[in-house]
Structure formats: structure tokens, C-alpha cells
Amino acid sequence: MSSYLITIGTMIAIQAIAVCGLNVIVGFAGQISLGHAAFLGIGAYTAALLATKAGLSFWMALPLVVAVCGSVGLLLGLPSIRLREDFLAITTIGINFIVEAVFRYVPFFGGALGIGGIPRVMFFGMRVKGTSFFLLCVAFLCLTLAACWWFKRSWAGLACAAIGEEEQAASTMGISPVRFKLLAFVIGTGMAGLAGSLYAHHMQFISAGDFSFSVSIALLSMLVLGGMGTLFGPLVGALILGALPEVFRPLVDYRMLFYTVLLLLVIRFQPAGLLGEESALRRILIPFVKGGMR
């Protein structure tokens, strides 16, 4: 495989991991998050700082990165307890802008120059890059999907689904909305932290602009396209929207137009996403992957 395709595949795998995290918050627990790139950024900056300033390896830093992202997610998930829908959407947008501004203007985070010199991932003394880094990202993606599969089938996943559908009815069944909304935020932002860490070690240079509001919208678009609340929707969405800009590269001036038209078509004809309920693709695939679609 050419290095060009490997690079695209790596980015798709990283984005798919972040979208899986967003799916836990939006798809499984029914909360709104329009600022998921902020957590991707917190993960990337934490990984970059731990690698460049503390000298920690990717493997040593990874649990810390996920823990930091999960903790910040817990803190920022608190508004979701009191806010609903439109107000929560605005709050999460605000979080994205604040986090981006902190990265851009606080010298500790490299300011406008960002953070460079992030080392490659090392594995038993070997530098992991190119195809091997792509395979590492795919392995993490598989682990993330397995975690989502397990979560969806757990009591906690069922509780989150119930809260997402009928919060009041769920609470009258003994389910604490506060506890499970926060759990969804912690898991979702922890996954974004993993994606951010992989991104930082892949790019070796990060800056605030990499985690702007437009990235949040791109991640959400991937989730909507693939199917919110489905297991493989994030992967399908990331594959299509990650590959499309490259496919339409010869028509570079029009590719955003194609991108927009595609999303409009999906919203019009498959509002639940390509793998969502009653979608054509789901009907075709269901006999082959029964039980794994929801």
C-alpha cells in the first residue's frame, strides 16, 4: 500500500475512534455534544506535553491521557445534568471555543506555534510509523469498537439508552440520570483522548487549529452519516467522510459542495444514518451481522 493511502487510513482510524466516543455521548445516551474536538485536543495536547516535557513514552502516557480527558469530560459533562438540548448544544460549542482559545493563547501550550517534536510511538525499541502505526490505530479502533459493543450490552448501556429515550420514565425505574449521563461523558471523552494521543504521535506537531469547531462538526457529521447509536455507524461515517475529500481531490474547488450535498441527501432520505433504523444498508447487512447493528 502506498504511504499516501496509509496516511489516509491512519487518519480515518483515528477519527473513527473519536466518533465512537461521540457516539457513546450522543448516540447511546442521547445527549448533545457539538464540541467533541475539544476533547480530541485535550488528549492530543496532554499526550504531546507528557511526551515532550515529561519524557513519557506513548504507552506510559496513554492511561494518563485517557484519565485526564475522562476527568475533564466529567467536569464539563456537569452542565448536561441541568441543561437540555439547545442550551446544552450551545454550552458544548462554547467549551470547544474556550479550549481552542486556551491552546492558542496560553504559552504553556505552545501558543500560536503549537507543539512540535512529538516523538513517534516506540514498541520494543522499534519506531512505529507508516504501516505499523496504521495497524496500531486499527488495533485501537477494534478495541474501542469492542468496548462500545460491551457497553451497549451492559446494564449501564441499557440505562443510558433508556435515559436517552425517556429520561423521566428511566428515573422512575430506579436509574439515576446524573450518574449515567456523566458516565457516558467520561467514556466518550476518554475515547476522544485516545484518538487525540494517536493523532499527536502521528502528526508529531499539533496546533490549536487542529481542534476547532469545524472539526467537531466534521466528527458529528460522520456520526450522523453512519448512524447514531449504532455500533458500526462511526466506522462507516469516518470511512466515507474521511475518504471523500481525497476522492474528490481533482475537483478540489467543488469537494465541499459534494460533501454538503451528500449530507443533505442522507438527512433527507436516511435520517437515521446509513446503518440507522430502517435504512436500506441495514436491511441488506442485517442477515450477515444480526445483533451487531444496534
Binding site: 439508552a161 433508556a162 429515550e165 425517556e166 423521566q168
Partner: peptide
Amino acid sequence: RSRIFPRL
């Protein structure tokens, strides 16, 4: 009006 969980 029952308020069941419609997608479950």
C-alpha cells in the same frame, strides 16, 4: 400515555 422506551 405509557411512556415506554420506543426504540428499545
